[in-house]
């Protein structure tokens, strides 16, 4: 089992490294969209402080949705996905490894980039660790839930937009818990409760998503 996890992770990360240009796109997107907000709405720093949590969260969600479509696509096209489902190894574990890698190459860099952008949006410094923690958790649950959508649309030629339509409404709780956490600390309210909700949601997604993703992959691959 450990060997399986090790091999899958190694393979995924190698593949991710080979297409590193693709991985930069969500990050560029994140920076670009976040810097559009002050130009579009207001440059007043007080107002920006108020909405910085929400803006960062929405942009991070959109950015990692961009890269979701690639989660299974290459493996589907070269047939290795079918091999994975047919092999004796539990496909849920493999899927979980893929989800983890997706988070590692999109969610984690987005989180690491967020301090820079939070300065631009005048987020108070004491809120920064909480913002990063919420983003780390939130992007992980996004990868988990997004994998279901990616698996459902992998067989379609133009799955990208459809994937967004399918997954967006399901992600509303993640967005709300995340922004509430950040907003609570900015306003000086108690924030750990909201972060706990986000953690609970992630834990629930962690338990259910691999099974549903495998079921969805079977629909996409076998038909």
């Amino acid at each position: 089992m450990i060997k399986l996890v090790q091999h899958t992770l190694q393979r995924e990360l190698t593949l991710a490294y080979r297409r590193r240009a693709d991985l930069l796109n969500p990050l560029f997107f994140f920076v670009l969209v976040v810097s559009l907000f002050p130009m579009g709405i207001t440059t007043d720093l007080d107002k920006l402080t108020e909405m910085s949590g929400g803006v960062l969260w929405v942009c991070a969600l959109l950015a990692s949705l961009l890269s979701l479509d690639l989660m299974f696509r290459n493996d589907f096209e070269d047939g290795s996905l079918e091999q994975m489902l047919l092999s004796s190894a539990p496909p849920q574990v493999i899927v979980l490894c893929k989800i983890f890698c997706h988070w590692l190459v999109t969610g984690v860099p987005l989180t690491l980039l967020s301090p820079l952008l939070s300065i631009m949006l005048a987020l108070p410094g004491h809120a920064l660790p909480v913002l990063m923690a919420s983003l780390l958790l939130g992007t992980f649950s996004l990868s988990l839930i997004g994998s279901i959508g990616a698996a459902l649309t992998v067989g379609l030629r133009k799955g990208g937009l459809l994937l967004t339509i399918l997954i967006m409404p399901v992600l509303v709780p993640v967005l709300i818990f995340g922004t509430s956490t950040v907003q609570a600390i900015v306003l000086g309210l108690a924030w750990p409760g909201y972060l706990a909700f986000l953690g609970a949601f992630t834990a629930g997604a962690f338990a259910l998503a691999p099974w549903l993703t495998v079921a969805a992959l079977k629909v996409s691959v076998c038909d």
Partner: peptide
């Protein structure tokens, strides 16, 4: 046929989420 099965999975994801969505929207 694949549309049927895919939509069934999506509907299950949604129905599990409806109480959570209501809870979170109530929160915000």
């Amino acid at each position: 046929e694949s549309g049927d099965r895919a939509a069934a999975i999506l509907a299950l994801v949604g129905v599990v989420n409806i109480p959570v969505i209501k809870f979170s929207v109530n929160l915000v």
